Simulated scan of single mutants.
Amino acid sequence: MPMNKAEKIALFIDADNAPAAKIDKVLSELARYGVVNIRKAYGNWKSPTLQRWEELLHEFAIQPVQQFDLTKGKNATDMALVIDVMDVLYTKDIDIICLVSSDCDFTPLVTRTLADGKFVIGFGERKAPSAFVNSCSRFLYLDDPAPAEQPVPKPAKSIKSDTKLINMLRQAIESVEEGDGWAQLGAVGTHISNHASFDPRNHGFKKLSDLFLAIDLFEVKKSNKNVMWVRDLRKVRALPKKAS
């Protein structure tokens, strides 16, 4: 959910472990939150595997940070990225940290950044470990359709079998519900964002309301003031029946 004001964003890209073709998707999403003041990409720019990234650096005003392959693996790249994030935390006025990677090694960095009161947005592919995905304030998959494309919703049966997702939705409703079990959809979304890395687009839905409407476990309505409300149908069945 985008913030209420234009946030200052620092973008850090693990170029060794992120698809260059999706940088427009990353920047388009971040534009919903604010201005990307810092844009850095890390890797060995002498490597032919980063040629596609190199072609995009000037176009998207991304600063390349060179890290030679001094040892087998890419620990040097990871370390340089971590150092720069920590430097930004202590020396810059930044509201949001964005990490583009599918590498689980950055999970402790996310945890530390959250502890400093920052909002952390992650981007990666479906292969990204759940520990990294779940640690972020919000995580979007780069191998899903672009925002301008029509998402492909998951079948309702598949969603209902996702016990973790359903429990999260129910707990969020219960935490902010008002009369007769109804909860404002906006409050439900805020509660989820505060407690988990979740975005309905990762399930094929543009909006949270579309996700709820696709599952027959919940009831959705709109008030006269165009405010969306949702409630758990289990709550409806538990309510005392009104005398006719």
Rank of each mutant, 00 (worst) to 15 (best):
P108R: 01
T190R: 07
K241F: 10
V110F: 01
S28A: 12
V110W: 02
K5G: 08
D16H: 10
S102M: 08
T77W: 10
R231V: 02
L211T: 10
F60M: 00
K72L: 15
T113Y: 02
T91W: 07
R126M: 13
A76Y: 11
S102V: 08
G181Q: 07
N226A: 03
F132Y: 15
V36G: 05
S223L: 08
G181S: 08
K74L: 08
T107H: 03
V152N: 13
M79H: 10
P48S: 07
N194W: 04
L89H: 07
L165T: 08
S101G: 07
T113P: 06
P240H: 04
V65S: 11
I166W: 11
G189R: 00
F119A: 02
T163Q: 13
V35Q: 12
A21G: 08
R39P: 05
G186S: 02
K46Y: 14
H58M: 12
S101D: 06
K46D: 14
K225A: 03
A6E: 13
L99V: 00
Y141I: 09
A156D: 03
M3H: 14
L211D: 09
S137W: 11
N37R: 14
K5V: 14
T77M: 09
S102T: 07
I83D: 06
F218I: 03
E55V: 06
E55M: 15
N167Q: 15
A148G: 03
F132P: 11
H58A: 15
D232T: 06
R234Y: 10
M168C: 05
E125S: 05
S209V: 14
A15F: 13
P240G: 04
R32M: 13
V82M: 06
V176W: 05
V188F: 02
E54V: 10
M168Q: 10
